[in-house]
Simulated assay, not measured.
Amino acid sequence: MMCPCGCGEVIELSLSPDSKTYWTLGIEAGRPTLHPSVWRNTGCRSHFWVRRGRVHWVL
């Protein structure tokens, strides 16, 4: 997915439980939810949750 901050970077998240770090994808009210939060440790350093298809920024 594209980083929601607008920096133009592509964020790749593993959904495979066989990976060391992975996210779970759920559908709530027909919209995607990710767990845990996404925290970029390079580039723009964005930190956010995706809940019911909306981005919620961690400040």
Score class of each variant (00 low, 15 high):
residue 14 S to G: 14
residue 33 T to M: 02
residue 13 L to D: 14
residue 16 S to G: 00
residue 33 T to K: 00
residue 13 L to K: 13
residue 17 P to E: 13
residue 41 N to Q: 15
residue 6 G to V: 01
residue 2 M to R: 12
residue 32 P to R: 05
residue 54 R to T: 09
residue 36 P to H: 12
residue 10 V to M: 10
residue 13 L to A: 14
residue 25 L to E: 14
residue 50 V to F: 04
residue 28 E to T: 01
residue 56 H to P: 00
residue 40 R to Y: 00
residue 52 R to F: 01
residue 33 T to A: 02
residue 47 H to S: 06
residue 21 T to G: 02
residue 30 G to V: 04
residue 19 S to E: 15
residue 32 P to L: 02
residue 22 Y to C: 07
residue 17 P to M: 10
residue 53 G to E: 09
residue 50 V to S: 03
residue 51 R to C: 04
residue 36 P to M: 08
residue 10 V to K: 13
residue 58 V to Q: 10
residue 49 W to D: 10
residue 46 S to H: 06
residue 42 T to D: 15
residue 48 F to G: 03
residue 26 G to L: 00
residue 54 R to A: 10
residue 33 T to P: 00
residue 8 G to Y: 03
residue 35 H to K: 08
residue 15 L to K: 15
residue 3 C to N: 02
residue 54 R to F: 04
residue 20 K to M: 05
residue 40 R to K: 11
residue 34 L to G: 01
residue 40 R to H: 09
residue 18 D to N: 07
residue 25 L to C: 14
residue 7 C to E: 05
residue 33 T to G: 04
residue 30 G to I: 00
residue 19 S to H: 09
residue 49 W to G: 02
residue 18 D to R: 12
residue 41 N to F: 09
residue 38 V to A: 02
residue 41 N to H: 14
residue 56 H to I: 09
residue 2 M to F: 09
residue 45 R to I: 06
residue 6 G to N: 04
residue 32 P to A: 03
residue 14 S to F: 13
residue 37 S to E: 11
residue 25 L to F: 12
